[in-house]
């Protein structure tokens, strides 16, 4: 029997890149790695696989990429348009190309600020969805109306090698000694799931029986608090103990930096050329800009603070029951792997 083909959208990203690697090393499927732009190619181009232009906002590219494909694992992510319209385009192209199944990587962000034991039937309390959560929820709605078989996976906080947010940024905060114990602000449940566990579910979902039309929470085997996670991460990095900071001080700092964050994002988006021109001409300005950037990266924003105190557990029971296996990478094993990778990359910079 000839190998079946899987197209991975967003193949240059954190989850998509890991799926492509796992598919390549697994040797069970032929892989097509879909990328929207060349800047996301380096990680996957090092494998002898086929790269395809696949901007999910370009139906023509999707139609070409889906031709002859058996399954699609849809990992492409971006702003709301990419998440919602991009998913619709992927599903339309997959339906036209008679793809057997699409695995859509959604997120537990669709539950907003729901607390307690959160299963797949839980809905987000009113007005608690982030922009990202809203878009992911809308993308799931698109999946329900699709003319192709779809499985939806809702991973929790995905960490591990290549995670720019939960591995690199947090390591940066710890390495620079900028992270403080958050006290009550950090006692929310940290629903960590290692990227390898997410990838195992995503690949299994392409052929698993009894999953079409269903959504599944994908979570890790161990639920710790955010304070605990950062302390363990700190230990794995071999750093001195984290010091305590009063909750009020953390909140004030986050609040004060909020307008600077907004201005910084705007300036980077619209005036990055002028900023780098200015920085090249003035060492002091360059140093100041670097310090501001580091401070912003190292200080949690208000969305993060909400997350760090959220008392929610995304129950993975349904996925474990239907797929017949569970996530098995514990926090310490996952962090050890993350730190080994970080060291290989020259640390967080």
């Amino acid at each position: 029997m000839s190998q079946e083909t899987i197209l991975v959208t967003g193949a240059g990203g954190f989850v998509g890149g890991t799926i492509v690697e796992a598919l390549h090393f697994g040797e069970e499927y032929r892989v097509l790695a879909g990328i929207a732009r060349w800047s996301s190619a380096p990680r996957i181009a090092r494998l002898p696989i086929t790269l395809v232009q696949c901007d999910v906002l370009k139906p023509d590219e999707l139609a070409e990429a889906c031709a002859g494909v058996d399954y699609v694992i849809h990992c492409a992510v971006g702003d709301s348009e990419v998440i919602v319209q991009g998913t619709k385009n992927v599903l339309d192209a997959a339906a036209k190309a008679r793809v057997k199944r699409v695995v859509h990587i959604s997120s537990v962000a669709i539950y907003g600020a729901a607390t307690g034991q959160v299963d797949e039937e839980t809905t987000a309390p009113q007005a608690t969805l982030t922009t990202y959560g809203e878009a992911k929820l809308a993308s799931e709605e698109v999946c329900r109306k699709a003319h192709v078989d779809v499985v939806v996976l809702r991973p929790s906080v995905i960490y591990g090698p290549f995670s720019a947010v939960w591995t690199v940024r947090n390591a940066l905060r710890l390495v620079h000694g900028r992270w403080k114990h958050l006290g009550a602000l950090g006692e929310g449940k940290c629903n960590l799931v290692h990227v390898h566990d997410v990838v195992r579910f995503a690949i299994a979902a392409v052929r698993q029986a009894g999953v079409v039309g269903e959504a599944f929470n994908i979570n890790g085997p161990e639920i710790v608090t955010w304070n605990d996670y950062m302390e363990r991460f700190n230990k794995h990095l071999g750093l001195p103990d984290i010091t305590f900071q009063a909750a009020s001080r953390t909140q004030i700092k986050t609040g004060l930096l909020s307008p600077i964050r907004v201005i910084g994002k705007y300036a980077l988006k619209h005036h990055s050329t002028q900023l780098s021109w200015l920085a090249r001409r003035n060492d002091r300005l360059q140093n100041l800009m670097q310090q501001v950037e580091l401070t912003l990266k190292c200080t949690p924003d208000s969305d993060e603070l909400s997350l760090f105190s959220l008392d929610a557990h995304y129950r993975p029971d349904k996925a474990e029951r239907v797929f017949g296996f569970r996530s098995d990478i514990g926090v310490d094993a996952g962090l050890a792997m993350s730190v080994a990778w970080l060291n290989h990359m020259g640390g967080p910079n």
């Binding site: 796992a22 090393f25 069970e28 990838v199």
Partner: peptide, 12 residues
């Protein structure tokens, strides 16, 4: 090659 224990080599 580097020794890279973080690669997802869990196969089938």
């Amino acid at each position: 090659s580097y020794d890279a224990p973080w690669l997802p080599r869990f196969g089938k």
